[in-house]
Nucleic acid binder design. Structure first.
Lengths: 168, 168
DNA sequence: ATTAACTTTCATAAATTATTGAAAATTCAA
DNA sequence: TTGAATTTTCAATAATTTATGAAAGTTAAT
């Protein structure tokens, strides 16, 4: 396989995978493009390479910056803005974990804490099942929360370094 | 908060969270409803409780069964089919991990293995960055793959039981 | 201050995804 | 068998999400 073909394949597949994870296809494709670009590139570069509009690039680069995965870079002597992605995949995954935890897990745990303390007859089967379910999810969520905190703080190759050896 | 209100809140929020994870809102709501229902319920029950059409219920219960999260249950003396969800949250999470791994991670690793072996000048900056990126993701993916396998096989509360103690 | 380069906004359009509901298929009791 | 109860299918439609592009806004060199 030639480089150009492989690049296209990578960008396109990355976008497809992303849609299974609640992430906008184009945002993922821009991220993929930036990941394989050795040097920072411009809005126009992205428009051209992915065949998308200026507004679309603007909106999705902003989102990527918001996620802490991409930076604006100033290139001396250039008027245009350049974009550059964090290339260290471990840092990328840590950053994504951190953000999703903050945006989704934390609010969910907050909600479950509310739902847990409903008023009502604890002997009622419906009430009982509701409480059991909410508590179960809350417990799982809290544990996951703690584990993710550890992972975020851990060293680059936390999995190889410690986790796997432990389980062997 | 009253039970009815809490139930409605739970179902609605569960659906909202799901959309952030590439999961159909209605499918998640049906799952939530089944999780808090102490006894198996019918297609008509679901239609009524969630105000959705028969076709919609049919399609999404099938999908939930496909994911291994819900079962059809025969109730003696009843003509209709009943549905029941696995209530053990740890089993539920394990099952979801297993399925997503199979459906998404495994194919992704397969693709990356292909892309890794492109032909071209390894000294070229673009080629170099492409290979680095693909290899980095592949490495991360493989490690995650192994970790998830361990988690799937581990006992009920894998996190408390082993992971967390180890990191303390 | 002017202006050309560049970026952002946002109303509208396009594409995608989810839902409906009625017809077809299936199941099962009599 | 028959037919009533129930489930499934799927073309049509609705809802949601994403993309466009031209106008408005910003920036910085002169």
């Amino acid at each position: 396989m030639k480089l150009a073909e492989a690049k296209a394949q990578f960008i396109s597949s990355w976008g497809a995978f992303a849609t299974h994870w609640g992430i906008n296809r184009t945002m993922a494709q821009i991220h993929a493009l930036l990941l394989i670009s050795p040097n920072p590139i411009t809005q126009d570069d992205i428009m051209e390479q992915l065949n998308i509009s200026r507004g679309n690039v603007n909106m999705n680069t902003r989102e990527l910056i918001d996620w802490g995965l991409v930076d604006r870079v100033l290139v001396p002597g250039e008027r245009k803005e350049f974009f550059s992605a964090e290339k260290d995949i471990w840092k990328v995954s840590t950053q994504i974990i951190k953000e999703r935890k903050r945006r989704e897990l934390d609010p969910m745990l907050k909600l479950l804490a509310q739902l847990e303390k409903i008023e009502g007859d604890k002997k009622d089967k419906d009430t009982q099942q509701f409480i059991d379910t909410v508590q179960g999810i809350k417990k799982l969520g809290s544990q996951a929360d703690k584990m993710l905190d550890v992972m975020i703080k851990a060293e680059e190759n936390w999995i190889t370094g410690s986790l796997l050896k432990f389980f062997k």
